[in-house]
Simulated scan of single mutants.
Amino acid sequence: MRSFPDRVRHALMFEIIGLAIITPAAAYLYDKPILQMGVVSIGSATIATIWTFVFNLGFDHAMRRMLGHTAKSFRMRLAHTVLFELGLLILLLPPIAWYLNMTLIDTLILDLGIVAFYLVYNFAFNVAYDRVFPVPTARHVKVMP
């Protein structure tokens, strides 16, 4: 299982890299001022950083309890990514709708592009992170696809 400092590094790296990509892209694609999208991005990143830490810790504990290890197969990584993004969507929609003065449905439609980006980004980032910063015990567990 990952250490506390490793989880902090993971969460911060994930958010900083994601923000550097999504803020200017969302401002351009949705024709919003970069400052307004920056506020949405920073607020979302703050919530997402906390969610990343809490969700990953809970997911790993659940894996350890149910499977006896925390090594993630392709299927487990895919389930991890989808569940993470669904939870984050539930947390973020109301404050974004309020800030942008939009309905929840309109905000959901607006957010789907961002969610699509983060689904792919989350998967790719976590696979890369696991390779660059492997969990020491994960090398000894055989992961079934």
Rank of each mutant, 00 (worst) to 15 (best):
M13T: 12
F14Y: 15
E15F: 02
E15L: 12
I16M: 14
I16H: 08
I16E: 07
A20M: 14
I21Y: 06
I21D: 04
I22Q: 08
T23Y: 02
T23F: 10
P24Q: 05
A27M: 08
P33T: 07
L35D: 11
L35S: 13
M37E: 14
M37H: 01
V40K: 00
V40M: 06
I42N: 07
A45E: 07
A45D: 04
A48E: 07
A48G: 15
T49W: 13
T49Q: 11
T52Y: 08
V54W: 09
F55L: 08
N56W: 12
R64E: 13
M66K: 11
M66G: 03
M66Q: 11
L67A: 13
G68I: 07
H69M: 04
A71V: 14
F74L: 15
M76T: 15
L78P: 01
H80S: 09
F84A: 10
E85Q: 15
L86Y: 07
I90K: 05
I90H: 02
L92V: 14
P94G: 06
Y99C: 02
Y99F: 15
N101G: 13
I105N: 06
L108V: 06
L108E: 02
I109L: 11
L110E: 03
G113D: 02
G113S: 05
A116E: 00
F117V: 00
Y118H: 12
Y121D: 05
N122F: 09
N126M: 04
N126R: 04
N126W: 00
D130Y: 01
